[in-house]
Design a protein around this nucleic acid. Structure first.
Length: 313
DNA sequence: TCTACGTGACACATTACGTCA
DNA sequence: CGTGACGTAATGTGTCACGTA
């Protein structure tokens, strides 16, 4: 599940095998294959099907239900079921289950916002009143002046910003942990439960996804940075070894006085290279018969009894 | 079957507001 | 009290998938 074909032939999400159900605060310390997340973020490759394809960071929040069609899975599930408010009003619910529903259109998206006024004026939609009475501090869109559902702009042209209450944020957060996306019905139910506009819930989820992705990107960057540092160090060490070997080749009489060269042991599972001394470790398979040192190995040219620490092998 | 169009949903970038040091 | 940094709600734009005529 953690993987998806982005059309580039890359399986980017690392499958993160161990942490499919992580919360936003816990990320895979080794998001190896997820690192190109920024590169696969672009346009058509990014979401060939928004409903089916999610970003890796989203997948971290999705468990088994994220397999193929989350929407179909989520459909019919009342997220944040409120005992009494989960039943959506008829006019709200009308056609909401259909992706192409007028109500859904009206309640979400910029187009909706543009068309909302006309639709509302026509009486086809009940604009949810956003009277956040409990949020006294928020004199914004709430109260009686919030007649611009989705518009956000008051008549004075100033953009009103609503500060969600802790309870609202908590519920949204919990819901997001369960599903990072909501279908229109769930959106409306959640909005009703929280006494918010559907558009606000939608926006919150969009922003939340963006924040999570940003966080994951930062983690990826940090990981890549460490990888780069390790590789740089490894490269430096190997360069040094190469120069040492070259020096040895130029002065064979020094062979027997030299410490044996460092050998590299590659872990077959993680493919990480560990540095060991050939004199103290068992030669790894890669370094035995088919060793890249091969005939170039200084030891090959030296009689066995003359090799330093030869008995240790 | 193919095509054009409308629609819904999303990602992403950006703006603007609220809060706090 | 003014201010800058920061978090985040809200907005605008572009894209894709899907349904329909």
């Amino acid at each position: 599940m953690g993987e998806r074909d982005d059309g580039l032939g890359l399986s980017l999400s690392l499958s993160l095998g161990s942490n499919q159900n992580e919360s936003s605060s816990r990320f895979n310390p080794m998001p190896l294959a997820s690192f190109p997340s920024s590169s696969h973020m672009h346009m058509q490759n990014h979401y060939s099907h928004p409903q089916k394809i999610q970003n890796n960071w989203i997948q971290m929040f999705q468990s088994s239900e994220r397999n193929s069609d989350v929407r179909s899975f989520l459909r019919g599930i009342d997220v944040n079921r409120a005992p009494s408010t989960v039943v959506v009003d008829v006019e709200e619910d009308a056609g909401v289950s259909s992706p192409n529903s007028t109500v859904s259109s009206v309640m979400s998206g910029k187009r909706s916002e543009r068309e909302l006024m006309a639709a509302a004026a026509a009486g086809g939609v009940r604009v949810i009143e956003d009277n956040e009475a409990e949020r006294a501090s928020c004199s914004l869109g709430g109260g009686g002046s919030d007649d611009d559902d989705g518009g956000g702009n008051g008549d004075d042209g100033s953009r009103k910003k609503l500060r969600l209450s802790k309870e609202q944020a908590l519920v949204l957060e919990e819901t997001f942990k369960e599903h990072s996306t909501l279908n229109p019905k769930q959106k409306m139910a959640l909005a009703k439960q929280l006494n918010l506009r559907t558009r606000q819930v939608e926006v919150w989820f969009q922003n939340r996804r963006a924040r999570t992705k940003l966080k994951q990107t930062e983690v990826d960057c940090e990981y890549l940075k460490r990888c780069c540092e390790n590789l740089t160090e490894e490269n430096r060490r190997l360069q040094k070894e190469v120069s040492e070997l070259r020096a040895l080749k130029l002065s064979p009489h020094l062979y027997m006085h030299m410490k044996p060269p460092t050998t590299l042991t590659m872990c077959p599972s993680c493919e990480r290279v560990a540095v060991t001394s050939s004199s103290s470790s068992v030669a790894p398979p890669a370094m035995t018969s088919s060793s890249p040192m091969g005939p170039m190995s200084p030891w090959a040219a030296i009689p066995l009894r003359q090799r330093p620490a030869a008995g240790s092998h």
